[in-house]
């Protein structure tokens, strides 16, 4: 019997410290266990995707399995390879599923196969049973699983946490006041199994794609940028080249 089989049966797994969920910002996001990231309104999927990649995507090598439901791909498109962190030892398999049920099945199959290092599933809906199954599989096999859900998802879940993501006006651009700067999001932790007191906490986050750091910005600085003077029609300064 080979190692993958043993791993698939949960008999062996890579040794790791007991999962001690830290009671601070990511609340275990990116560690084995099921986490959910949801849009806060229609159109925030790009923010949810950006938060997902920023929070956990940077260091995970190996095989990624990215399950998408067809309707979501048709609505908000693909996550291109160019947007993913440029790791040399990464293989991303994308799985197209017609129904949410098939997508959740594929995600669970990827977790228990022992082949994937990170499983992301974008489905229209998930219920308590399937999230419980995914949680059990994920903790047993030590593979982080993230569900990216639409704004309409509500209700019970067995996931370790559920985040709700909204776009915020971007940071001021140091080089060009008229250009968007580093992206900012508002992440509200709706459910947190490990630290119940954290539920409802909101974080204003800024992602710096040069230093690859996700930082919390204070509420004052995260306000909307001052509207530019609207008097001159040609207010958009073109960048040379």
């Amino acid at each position: 019997m080979d190692f993958a089989n043993l791993k698939a049966k949960g008999l062996v797994r890579t040794a790791m410290a007991p999962p001690a969920v830290r009671a601070e910002f990511p609340f275990g996001l990116g560690e084995p266990g099921l986490h959910e990231i949801a849009e806060s309104a229609y159109g925030d999927r790009a923010a949810a995707t950006g938060f997902l990649l920023a929070a956990i995507g940077q260091g995970v090598c190996g095989a990624w399995v990215w399950v998408r439901q067809t309707s979501i791909v048709l609505d908000t498109g693909e996550v291109p390879e160019a947007a993913l962190p440029g790791l040399s030892s990464r293989l991303r398999l994308t799985v197209q599923a017609r129904t949410a049920q098939a997508g959740l099945w594929a995600a669970e199959e990827a977790v228990v196969s022992g082949a994937a290092n990170l499983v992301i599933a974008e489905v229209e809906q998930s219920d308590f049973t399937s999230s419980r199954r995914l949680t059990l599989a994920s903790t047993r096999h030590g593979v982080p699983v993230v569900l990216v859900l639409p704004y309409s998802c509500e209700g019970a879940t067995a996931a370790a946490s559920r985040w709700r993501l909204a776009s915020r006006p971007s940071a001021p651009n140091r080089h060009d006041p008229h250009a968007p700067g580093h992206p900012r999001w508002r992440a509200v932790i709706e459910r947190c199994r490990a630290v119940p007191s954290a539920t409802g906490q909101a974080f204003d986050l800024e992602w710096n794609d040069e230093t690859l750091s996700l930082s919390v910005v204070s509420g004052l600085a995260a306000g909307p940028a001052a509207p530019p003077a609207a008097t001159d029609a040609n207010r958009f300064r073109l960048r040379a080249g």
Binding site: A4, A63, V65, S88, R90, L91, G114, A115, A116
Partner: peptide, 13 residues
């Protein structure tokens, strides 16, 4: 060497 087990990945696929 590649960071993933190609055989396990193709089995999953």
């Amino acid at each position: 060497g590649t960071g993933f087990d190609a055989q396990a990945v193709s089995g999953l696929a």
